[in-house]
Write a protein that binds this DNA or RNA. Structure first.
Lengths: 148, 148
DNA sequence: CCATTATAATACGATATCGCACCATCTAGA
DNA sequence: TCTAGATGGTGCGATATCGTATTATAATGG
């Protein structure tokens, strides 16, 4: 199964381009002052349905702690997340999404709806949906490989 | 063919995560001071085998002109690209990859080789390779939708 | 228990990304 | 031909991202 990695590089290249283009599109639809990084954190918090620490989040996203600190402070400033004491570690805190954060997340997805519809009209979505399991496998593998 | 966009959003989500994780991995292997954005430009220049203008590059990547100006100046400073006058537009210039840039590109890919091999060992690469045509279609559609 | 080492979060400064404004050049239309 | 509007690239400043250093706290081992 371990084959020449070149096709893998090419695939990751495609992924990077797709991510860049779709991210720019999405970000243009977010309210002023918000970035994909903000949405990404909210999305993750909803997905895991938990209140992870900044450290855990930084790891999950593979960004430096200071980057995550800054991103979270922006979200907190807008009331989209709140910080709670971490009962297991006095140095730490837990990040919880607020009701406003949930609404923000829903609104952001709604705002990109028309663009996605336009995109779906241009492609074979059924064909593309077939790629989802493989992409999930790839993500899981990358998750397993990341710095702890 | 135009279906509910929700699965599309989910797929783009997976793509964004994969891109973030693989990008961090790749960037860790680049020489100090270099970012994925630098490599991306070199990769693109090799791919199109042409000397596009900064404006065209900024469009292709869907980043602001000033961002591209800054990225290109970094590449030029290291001799990985050079600027040539644009014979068709006195306001503009053409960006050409240098021999050093080609070598840099090759070295960067070689440097990520072991990681890709390790990744390939964890996944069904044949299954994943099957996703490439669909991803290319998606990229082409996004390319068609982008701001001109 | 205590000393050493490790770790979580943040202050701070450097650089990357971004938007606004500007100037030189180009394009389009009267 | 000329003028108004548009465009390419960059200066400049604001913010996002990043790395170093710091402090408080936790973990580990003798």
């Amino acid at each position: 199964m371990a084959d020449t990695p070149e096709p893998l590089f090419e695939l990751l290249n495609e992924v990077a381009i797709i991510s860049q283009l779709s991210g720019s599109l999405f970000e243009a639809r977010l309210p002023d002052g918000f970035l994909v990084s903000h949405f990404g954190v909210l999305n993750h918090l909803l997905r895991v349905n938990d209140a992870p620490t900044p450290r855990t989040l930084a790891r999950n996203f593979q960004v430096p702690k200071t980057t995550m600190t800054h991103t979270l402070s922006g979200l907190a400033r807008h009331g989209l997340i709140r910080f709670e004491p971490n009962p297991r570690d006095g140095r730490s805190k837990c990040v919880r999404i607020t009701e406003a954060g949930r609404r923000f997340h829903g609104d952001a997805i709604a705002a990109i709806g028309p663009d996605l519809a336009a995109l779906a009209a241009r492609i074979d979505t059924a064909h593309l949906a077939g790629t989802l399991p493989a992409l999930r496998e790839l993500r899981a593998a990358l998750d397993a490989m990341r710095d702890v």
